[in-house]
């Protein structure tokens, strides 16, 4: 048998091969190769993803640089009790952002506890400045949460503030105490000065001394008429301990 005849026999024998091999050849579809052209959209998507992750990480880092909670004192008086409690409950980021207001702000903050003589009652202009400061924070994204009342600790300069979110129940309770004129007194002592600020659902900030917007009747309910409160009040201490969160 010559080679041509053998080749024909081989060809006929190929008809007898395993049908699975024949099926495989008929149905085989190679996986598409990742050519440069196909890599471009994948690479683009990867770059966008990395950028998004980087921005997210950057945002987290900026907002994660929180001021450490103040050290807790072993013995405290009633005024310090409120202060200490509020310090422990501080809304993250507010202090650090407020600190960026400058050295003047920081010094003023220290003055609260060290130099009572520098106190003066909060005038409307000061309250306006405070409101602007808070709103500035809001725009920066540190924000008072919309719809949440804030308990604000401010010095006589009005540039250094500490904000604490307080529930609406707490705010109403404080308001009720004020209306009853029971336990709350205006104070000339800056160490005892405390303010109530309300952030309404539109994000606007109301502060003591600021004229209320008549169009916001609902929000006006939560605005207090007095600019200063005596934080030595045991009732206020109770309310703060109950409602600040």
């Amino acid at each position: 048998m010559n080679n041509r005849e053998k080749a024909k026999k081989l060809f006929q024998s190929l008809e007898k091969i395993d049908p699975a091999l024949i099926d495989e050849a008929a149905e085989y579809h190679p996986q598409k190769k990742l050519t440069l052209k196909r890599w471009i959209p994948i690479a683009s998507a990867a770059v966008v993803l990395v950028l998004a992750l980087s921005l997210t990480a950057l945002f987290s880092i900026n907002h994660g640089a929180m001021a450490p909670a103040p050290e807790q004192k072993d013995t405290i008086d009633s005024a310090e009790a409120v202060s200490s409690y509020l310090d422990r409950q501080v809304v993250s980021g507010y202090d650090s952002i407020a600190a960026q207001e400058g050295a003047e702000s920081a010094n003023a903050s220290d003055d609260i506890k060290t130099d009572p003589d520098t106190h003066s009652s909060a005038p409307v202009d000061q309250a306006n400045r405070d409101a602007e400061t808070v709103m500035e924070m809001d725009r920066d994204g540190a924000l008072p949460q919309i719809g949440e009342p804030l308990l604000v600790w401010l010095n006589e300069e009005g540039t250094r503030v500490r904000l604490y979110q307080i529930s609406r129940e707490g705010s109403r309770a404080i308001k009720q105490l004020m209306e009853d004129e029971d336990g709350f007194e205006p104070t000339d002592d800056p160490d005892q000065e405390i303010g109530i600020w309300i952030v309404d659902e539109d994000g606007a900030v109301y502060a003591p001394g600021l004229p209320a917007d008549d169009s916001r009747q609902g929000s006006k309910e939560l605005i207090f008429g007095k600019a200063t409160l005596n934080q030595n009040s045991p009732k206020l201490l109770d309310i703060v301990q109950t409602y600040v969160h």
Binding site: L14, E15, I17, D18, L21, A25
Partner: peptide, 26 residues
Amino acid sequence: IGECISEFLRTQKQDKRVAFVKRYYY
């Protein structure tokens, strides 16, 4: 012979196997 070729093809990589069957079967 067909059985022997099948055994051989099973030892080959898929793309080689498929190319062979396409060429010499189909």
